[in-house]
Design a protein around this nucleic acid. Structure first.
Length: 191
DNA sequence: TGCCCGATTAACT
DNA sequence: GTTAATCGGGCAA
């Protein structure tokens, strides 16, 4: 029995939602796969876009949970976040990598390569593969064209430091599927 | 207004 | 390991 993730799922601490998303299925217009890597950004976190208060760009983060926050990264890429926590708390989970399972031809075409390991291994790559842009900023996650399905099996989740940030870089708020071949970077093994 | 820098990626050496 | 591509946000003046 497949369960759709509702807004209530996201109306919790970003540090609860982030690990719970590992193993969930993310589909966008019929393409996507299992979420294997995410990062949590709490509004009290200096690395979060919402840390310095609301702006035009981060406005969606200050709205209710269960919506997509899409922003441009390095002037080139798009990155997809899921807004979490009660309204106004301005926290979100960054979707960093998927294990592609559905709509591979479309994703290969948009990415211009065939290797499934590199199709969705990184936040910019996920958006390019799924065709997500600023046009999709603010869309509800429990309505089409999004489709989010809860994981159906027990999943081994590992945590580690986040990637590509300079502030609060030591916080272990990156979560991933243990030993997945589709991560943007491996997690340091604990033995 | 101007300047610096970033939740990145790909193509280099 | 290094670096260019490319642009909006944030902050100083």
């Amino acid at each position: 029995m497949v369960k759709t993730l509702t807004k209530a799922f996201f109306r919790r601490s970003v540090h609860e939602v982030a690990p719970d998303l590992i193993g969930a299925m993310l589909l966008f217009k019929g393409a996507g796969g299992r979420i294997v890597e995410v990062e949590a950004y709490h509004h009290t976190d200096p690395a979060a876009h919402s840390f310095r208060g609301p702006t035009t760009r981060n406005a969606v983060m200050f709205g209710p949970a269960g919506y997509a926050y899409v922003y441009r990264s390095y002037g080139i890429h798009w990155c997809l976040n899921f807004v979490c926590e009660p309204k106004g708390s301005a926290s979100a989970v960054l979707i960093r990598a998927l294990e592609p399972t559905t709509g591979l031809p479309a994703m290969r075409r948009r990415r211009g390569l065939a290797d499934p390991r590199l199709l969705c291994a990184g936040p910019g790559r996920v958006c390019q593969a799924l065709g997500i842009t600023a046009a999709h900023n603010g869309l509800a996650l429990d309505e089409l064209p999004f489709r989010l399905l809860a994981r159906t099996v027990e999943t081994a989740v590992v945590a580690g430091p986040r990637i590509g940030i300079t502030k609060a870089a030591e916080k272990p708020w990156r979560y991933g599927l243990k030993d997945s071949a589709f991560l943007s970077k491996p997690f340091r093994s604990r033995g």
